[in-house]
C-alpha cells in the first residue's frame, strides 16, 4: 500500500507542476508523469487490462500534445508569475472549500468497506460464470462486451462524439469564416 501513496504524492506534485510551469512542453511531460503513475497503480492493483490501455493512451496523448505544441507555441502566456492582491480572496476561498471538502469526504469514506472487499455482489457472479456463459477466457472482455455491452456501446459513443467534436472544431472552412468575419 505504501507505494500507492508514494505514487499519489508524485501525481499531485506533477499535476501542480503541469498547471504552474510556463513551458508548455514541460507541462505536457508533467501530465505524462501523472498518466504513467496511474498505469503503474493499475499494475500494482493487478489490473493488466486497464494498465495496457492507460500506457498506450497516455503515450499517444503526450505525442499529441508534443505534436501540437511543436507546431504552434511553446510558452503559456496566461501564467502571470507574480503576486497580485486580487488573488488573495479566491485563494483563501479555494483552500477553505478544499479543507471542508476533504473533511466531509474523509467522513464519507470511513463508512465504506475495507480496501479489496467490494459490496457489489453482482461481480461475483460475473467472475464465477464468465467462462461458462460466454466462452471468453478473459473475464474483463466477458464483462465489457457481453454482460455490460450497453456500457461499451456508450463508451464507443463518447469516443465518437469526441472525435466529431475535434474534427468540427479543427476543420478549415469554419476557421476561415471565423477569421475573416470576426477578426476586426
Amino acid at each position: 500500500m505504501i507505494e500507492l501513496y508514494v505514487l499519489l504524492a508524485a501525481m499531485i506534485v506533477a499535476a501542480l507542476v503541469a498547471i504552474e510551469i510556463k513551458d508548455l512542453l514541460a507541462a505536457a511531460v508533467a501530465l505524462g508523469i501523472v498518466g504513467f503513475s496511474v498505469a503503474i497503480m493499475f499494475i500494482l492493483l493487478q489490473a493488466p487490462d486497464l494498465a495496457i490501455v492507460q500506457v498506450v493512451v497516455e503515450t499517444l496523448t503526450v505525442v499529441f500534445f508534443a505534436a501540437v505544441i511543436l507546431r504552434t507555441t511553446n510558452s503559456d502566456t496566461t501564467i502571470a508569475g507574480r503576486f497580485r492582491h486580487e488573488l488573495i480572496f479566491p485563494t483563501v476561498m479555494y483552500v477553505t472549500f478544499g479543507l471542508v471538502f476533504l473533511v466531509l469526504v474523509g467522513r464519507a469514506l470511513a463508512g465504506l468497506p475495507e480496501f479489496g472487499n467490494p459490496t457489489m455482489l453482482v461481480a461475483r457472479e460475473y467472475i464465477a460464470l464468465g467462462l461458462e456463459r460466454t466462452g471468453a477466457a478473459n473475464v474483463v472482455a466477458a464483462v465489457i462486451l457481453d454482460f455490460r455491452g450497453y456500457d461499451t456501446l456508450g463508451e464507443a459513443t463518447v469516443l465518437f462524439t469526441a472525435v466529431i467534436g475535434v474534427l468540427t472544431l479543427m476543420r478549415r472552412a469554419g476557421r476561415r469564416e471565423l477569421t475573416s468575419e470576426n477578426r476586426n
Binding site: G135, A136, A137, A142, D146, G149, T152
Partner: peptide, 24 residues
C-alpha cells in the same frame, strides 16, 4: 447484445471462442 445464444460460445481458451466478443 445477446451473445451466447446468437453466436455460440465456441471452444473456451481457443482463438474462436467467446461468440460476439472477438468480432466486437
Amino acid at each position: 447484445f445477446q451473445n451466447a445464444a446468437t453466436y455460440g460460445t465456441g471452444t473456451p481458451l481457443k482463438l474462436i471462442s467467446g461468440g460476439m466478443i472477438l468480432p466486437a
